[in-house]
């Protein structure tokens, strides 16, 4: 009887020791991952994506002689195509682990969320899998965008009388 109590007491004591040791090690590694580094990487990668977008627009304007608005549309389609292709090939998740918000906040993140949702639920069939789950993540963006645009648009129209 005594032995069991002593044994269990020892056991729990060891476990507490182990937990505190584990927490110390976990804290040590948490501090190491700095927030400044993440922010800098996000700034640089997001900036490079914006820079490439402007370069694509100017190239299209100069070589195909189309207006700036059309070139912007083409640029967005190119980015969406690239993001969908990289997601389908499986590269986008690795890139997102490195660059984080730098690649998720541009329009590439929107295309990635749609393609990854469609791929993940592919095994449930074309209707209940791909069809009903494609907007699982991107739907919130569209819904809140439309609701807020309607709300602000009504305010602007009633106060200022359109643009």
């Amino acid at each position: 009887m005594y032995e069991i109590i002593i044994f269990s007491h020892n056991n729990s004591g060891e476990e507490i020791m182990r937990n505190t040791k584990y927490e110390k090690i976990a804290d040590f590694h948490k501090v190491k991952e700095t927030r400044g580094k993440n922010a800098l990487i996000a700034f640089l990668s997001g900036g490079v994506i914006g820079l490439c977008g402007e370069i694509i627009i100017e190239l299209l304007c100069n070589y195909f002689h189309i207006s700036r608005n059309d070139a912007t549309t083409f640029m967005i389609v190119i980015y969406i195509f690239l993001a969908s292709l990289l997601t389908a090939l499986g590269c986008f998740d690795k890139l997102a682990n490195i660059f984080k918000c730098g690649i998720l906040i541009p329009i590439t993140g929107f295309a990635h969320s749609m393609t990854s949702a469609a791929l993940d639920y592919k095994k449930e069939g074309p209707i209940y899998g791909i069809g009903s789950n494609m907007f699982k993540l991107a739907g919130s963006v569209i819904i809140y965008g439309v609701v807020s645009a309607w709300f602000f648009g009504m305010i602007r129209y009633l106060i200022g009388g359109g643009s």
Partner: peptide
């Protein structure tokens, strides 16, 4: 364009690191 696009991503990364919001929340807010 480099500065503006980088600045928006920087803002999003700071919100992501310093709060419990997920990228889904942040894109909706933006």
């Amino acid at each position: 364009s480099f500065l503006f696009c980088g600045f928006v991503c920087l803002l999003a990364q700071l919100i992501l690191d310093n709060s419990k919001l997920t990228p889904g929340h942040i894109t909706s807010i933006f």
